[in-house]
C-alpha cells in the first residue's frame, strides 16, 4: 500500500533527485508547498517551465542566455579584442563582479577529464578557434579555468590549439588570496606565489 498519495510522492522523488537534497528535505519542501498559498506553487512551476523554455545557449560564447546572441556578445561597448575562457556560466558572473573586465567570454561547459570520459570534443573548445578570425581581430585570449589538475590540463590544451596564431594567450595568476594570512596558506599555493612574485612598483 502506498502511504502517500501519488502527486505528493512524485514531487518528493523529483526534489530528492536534485543535488544536495535528500528525501527528508524533499518531503519538507513538498509539505511546505502544500500549505503555502497557491500562487507560490504556481510561480515555482512557471519558473521551472521558463528555465528550460526560455533559456538557451549563446551561439557565440555558449553562455546561458534568453536571447541568442547573449547580452555580452551583442553589447557594442565591450572590448571585442579580448576573450576570457571559463569553465562554467557561474565563472562569468564571478568575473563580471570584478567590474574590471570589459571583454567577451567563451564558456567551455566543463574541463578535460579523461577518467570521466570528457575530452576536448565534449567541450566547446573547437568553437573558440573561428571566433579569433572575427573583425576586429582578437588580440588576447585569457584562460581562466580553475587552478586544479583538470583546469590546468584544459588550459594547456587550449594554449596548444592557439599556438602559431597571432594572438596573445594569458593565464590567470595563481597565488595568495587578498586579505589572506601567509601562515594559513598551504605549501603549494605559497610556493606558486613565490615563483610568481612581482617587482614592487
Amino acid at each position: 500500500m502506498q502511504l502517500l498519495v501519488e502527486p505528493v510522492a512524485r514531487l518528493i522523488d523529483e526534489f530528492s533527485r536534485l543535488p544536495g537534497i535528500g528525501p527528508k528535505t524533499a518531503s519538507r519542501l513538498v509539505f511546505y508547498l502544500l500549505r503555502a498559498p497557491e500562487e507560490q506553487a504556481q510561480s515555482l512551476a512557471d519558473a521551472l517551465r521558463d528555465l528550460r523554455a526560455r533559456i538557451t545557449f549563446c551561439s557565440i560564447c555558449f553562455n546561458i542566455t534568453e536571447s541568442d546572441p547573449c547580452a555580452v556578445c551583442t553589447d557594442e561597448k565591450r572590448d571585442r579584442s579580448v576573450i576570457c575562457v571559463v569553465e562554467e556560466p557561474l565563472d562569468v558572473i564571478a568575473i563580471e563582479r570584478t567590474r574590471d573586465y570589459h571583454g567577451l567570454y567563451h564558456v567551455l561547459h566543463g574541463t578535460i577529464a579523461p577518467v570521466e570520459g570528457i575530452g576536448p570534443d565534449e567541450l566547446h573548445i573547437a568553437d573558440l578557434l573561428p571566433r579569433l578570425d572575427a573583425m576586429p581581430p582578437v588580440r588576447e585570449v585569457i584562460i581562466a579555468t580553475n587552478p586544479n589538475m583538470e583546469g590546468e590540463a584544459t588550459a594547456m590544451y587550449i594554449a596548444r590549439q592557439l599556438e602559431g596564431r597571432d594572438v596573445r594567450v594569458t593565464r590567470l595568476a595563481r597565488g595568495l588570496p587578498v586579505g589572506g594570512d601567509l601562515e594559513y596558506a598551504d605549501e603549494v599555493t605559497l610556493s606558486r606565489a613565490l615563483s610568481g612574485r612581482q617587482t614592487m612598483e
Binding site: P114, G119, M149, A153
Partner: peptide, 20 residues
C-alpha cells in the same frame, strides 16, 4: 608523499586518455 598522490591521480587520467 605529495608527489605520489599527485602521480597516481595523473596516472589514472592518463591511462583513461590512452584508452580513449
Amino acid at each position: 608523499c605529495r608527489a605520489l598522490t599527485q602521480y597516481n591521480k595523473v596516472l589514472s587520467q592518463r591511462n583513461a586518455l590512452l584508452k580513449q
